[in-house]
């Protein structure tokens, strides 16, 4: 057996195999649900109902998808340049930190200006977080997978230090949490009374912006060239290292906006459990989307739906929520294989 490249994959091929991969991952998860002693169809029905079964559920899914869109975009942009940013988690927390720092200092600016300052500060913070690893990579060849991954732990401990010390909420009854944002520093709800906030709209705008950057700008062209073949890019006069730095700023900034949106739109303060791994899940989101920015929106909503649905299913059917993690993990593995099959055909001999 060997692989033969398919010159022009048909649409049926490009969509059929990924769809089959998703279906197959559901089958695998069903088997585990059976082992847990529940009915797979009922369980899957409950997940579906919990994810999109009501207006409330659907909005909750979109709420959960919002940070995933940001981190998914951050990862997609970086991976496009073969810059392996595993540190979206750290950039997320730095974004949240900057949001809290600027959002609790009573800036006294009129209208939405405090939010602009906070968002901008978050972007700068996240961008700087990725700048260090990239400079180490371009200057000394230090593997960014290692540096960005380890920074996740360093940043989390640093946040922990701040929450036990200077950033500790005096009204927090001893809990390690930051003070709440000023009232004028909150992202408003899109529809009054429902939990969906403007962070979701911002995420969609960012996805569109990333799409335009990749398709229409010289930066997008440079990022793709550097990712596909840095040697040819360098030979052709593309400043490879500078492109990597620009990619890092974009990627780090996007991941930090996830933190901004979670704090300013949803939680209102910074805690150590602000992210249930949004940075890492962003990698799954980006890979499922084949790094396409519009695909990131779709896959983020899909992944968020599974998490939200699994939460509500778990309450009703007494199956652990781990089933969501397994579902996503198998979906990702099978998707990688399916992507191979869209581009290659297996030939005997």
């Amino acid at each position: 057996m060997r692989l033969e490249p398919v010159a022009n994959p048909s649409i049926a091929r490009s969509l059929g195999f990924p769809a089959a991969a998703l279906l197959l991952s559901v089958v695998v998860a069903s088997g585990l649900v059976l082992l847990a002693g529940a009915n797979p169809f009922a369980t899957l029905g409950l997940i579906l109902k919990g994810a999109v079964g009501s207006k409330f559920a659907a909005l909750e899914t979109l709420n959960r998808a919002t940070p995933l869109i940001f981190t998914g975009l951050a990862v997609a942009v970086a991976f496009r340049a073969k810059l392996w940013n595993i540190g979206a988690e750290a950039q997320f927390y730095i974004g949240a930190l900057m949001t809290v720092v600027f959002g609790t200092s009573a800036l006294g600016l009129p209208g939405p200006q405090p939010l602009v300052v906070m968002g901008f500060a978050a972007i700068v913070g996240g961008a700087v977080m990725l700048l260090g690893p990239v400079i180490l990579k371009t200057r000394f060849g230090v593997d960014e997978v290692v540096t960005t991954l380890l920074l996740n732990f360093i940043v989390l401990l640093f946040i922990s230090l701040l929450l036990e010390g200077p950033l500790k909420d005096p009204m927090g009854m001893g809990w390690p949490k930051s003070p709440r944002l000023d009232p004028d520093a909150r992202l408003p709800r899109i529809v009054t009374g429902l939990r969906l906030h403007w962070g979701f709209a911002l995420a969609l705008i960012c996805a569109g912006a990333v799409w335009v950057i990749e398709k229409r700008t010289t930066l997008g062209y440079e990022i793709r060239a550097v990712g596909q073949n840095p040697r040819a890019a360098r030979f052709a006069g593309i400043p490879v290292n500078f492109v990597l730095v620009k990619t890092a700023l974009l990627s780090g900034g996007l991941a930090a906006l996830a933190g901004f949106s979670e704090v300013a739109g949803l939680k209102g303060s910074l805690t150590l459990d602000l992210s249930p791994g949004f940075g890492y899940t962003g990698i799954i989101v980006a890979m499922l989307a084949l790094l396409h920015p519009v695909g990131v929106v779709v896959s983020a909503i899909f992944v968020a739906g599974i998490f939200v649905g699994a939460d509500s299913m778990s309450r009703a059917a007494n199956v652990p929520t781990y089933i969501a993690d397994i579902l996503l993990a198998t979906a990702l593995l099978l998707m990688v294989f399916a992507i191979l099959l869209t581009r290659y055909r297996i030939v005997k001999g």
């Binding site: 700008t217 596909q228 040819a232 890019a233 006069g237 593309i238």
Partner: peptide
Amino acid sequence: SIAEFSLTENVILERYRDPEISKAGWM
């Protein structure tokens, strides 16, 4: 060359910043 790039994208590799090919960062 860049294998996964189209012929067009490969042709402009050395001169995508020329004013005919891009203007103010727009391709």
